[in-house]
Simulated assay, not measured.
Amino acid sequence: MYNSLVKPLLFQLDAEQAHTAIHKFAQTASRSSMLKALASVIYGYQSPMLNQQLWGLDFGNPMGLAAGFDKNGEIPEIMDAVGFGFVEIGSITGNPSTGNPKPRVFRLPKDHALINRMGLNNDGAKTIIKRLKNKQLSIPLGVNVAKTHDPNIMGDLAIRDYVHSFNEAKKVADYITVNISCPNTSEGKTFEDTAALDELLSALEIREDARLVPTLIKFSSDLTKQELLSLLEVCENHRVHGYVACNTSSGRDRLTTDAKILKKIGRGGLSGSPIAPKSIQVVEWISEATNGQKPIIGVGGIDSFDIALKMILAGADLLQVYTGLIYEGPGLIKSINRQLVQQMKELNISSIHQLVTATTAE
């Protein structure tokens, strides 16, 4: 129904208008027991073979909603109902922000991709966390924190901004993702520098507090292997609990969209199918560098079972989707979960963790 009816209607609107329309309906659905129950019947899929426990949290399936879709924590209940195994809201920032001027989201239908330069628009940490306190979820809730989109907030002020959002997030989050790269702000990758990252993680006191909410670091998809390894060394020294790979890309590789269209769109973060190879590569690098001992959330270009499986085989324990949801609809979650179970049955294994060994042995 999504591809034949809903998607054609949504794609008549510009990308941000369509997102707003979806969001408004999702807010209504989140308040309706009947709509949530209906969504669960249509899209829900459960199997004990998909269960995992990471950071002491129970994940009913590996499919999560990526940060950016629900920036203000307004619709996690309906995402729970449609079958996600976890949701990550945000990015939230210390101060509220309206983001960049519109238009700021663009579809690349030929490439099953998006380019966005939203600019971290959100209601601010205090407001969002207060809203989330009233949410009743049956799945883990992640909160993604970033620096307020303001070029005047740099250095020590930037660190204080992160600490404020981080401390707010701790009040409700099952895990926290620290977003150290955002290509959609004027200052760009402020904390993808080893010295700056070390200072930030010291201020967050991850290493000092064993009771801390599990804290993950989200990397850019544009890092070289050496850049990534240097950042990982800092993270491991601070005993970071896991990683998210990857954020959107500033590059324009692997695109079939006309160059004139891309030039007209201009800057922004590329997401969707074209960045899948980069994301899978970064996941593999992280897994190798950490000897597979740190959980990884793979995100970036997952729009099919094949890509999801490649991400898992590269070392991802959990997966997240956003752009794939725009192009494939909510049925994507059920489809990937079903096919994962089918794959495990064919390999005669009982858990996702056994997939890598079993697939390699074939």
Rank of each mutant, 00 (worst) to 15 (best):
N3E: 12
V6L: 12
L9N: 00
L10M: 12
F11E: 15
A15C: 08
H19E: 09
H19N: 06
K24R: 15
F25L: 08
T28F: 15
S32V: 10
S32I: 12
L38N: 05
V41D: 15
I42Q: 10
Y45P: 02
M49I: 08
G56H: 07
D58I: 00
A66M: 10
G68A: 07
K71A: 01
G73R: 07
G73N: 11
I75Y: 01
S91M: 02
S97V: 03
N100I: 11
K102M: 01
F106Q: 04
P109R: 06
D111R: 00
A113I: 12
A113K: 05
I115H: 03
N116I: 12
G119L: 03
I128D: 03
L132N: 10
K135V: 15
L137E: 13
P140T: 08
L141M: 09
V143R: 00
K147A: 08
K147R: 13
D150V: 03
D150L: 03
P151Q: 11
N152A: 14
M154N: 12
L157Y: 09
Y162D: 04
V163T: 13
V163L: 13
A173C: 12
S181L: 04
N184A: 11
K189A: 15
K189W: 08
K189L: 14
F191E: 13
T194M: 10
T194L: 09
A195K: 12
A196K: 15
E199N: 14
L200K: 02
L200H: 02
L201T: 01
L201C: 05
A203E: 01
E205I: 06
L216K: 02
K218I: 08
S221L: 05
E227F: 04
L228R: 05
E236H: 00
E236D: 11
V240G: 03
V240F: 05
V244Y: 01
A245K: 06
N247T: 10
R252G: 05
T257W: 07
K260P: 09
L262T: 06
L262Q: 10
R267Y: 12
G269Q: 09
S271M: 07
S271H: 07
P277M: 06
K278F: 09
S279K: 04
V283Q: 02
E284P: 00
W285C: 03
E288I: 04
T290I: 14
Q293I: 00
G298I: 15
V299Y: 02
G300R: 10
G300S: 06
I307Q: 12
L313E: 08
L313Q: 07
Y322R: 01
I333G: 02
K334L: 11
S335F: 05
L340W: 01
Q343V: 04
E346V: 00
N348W: 00
Q354Y: 05
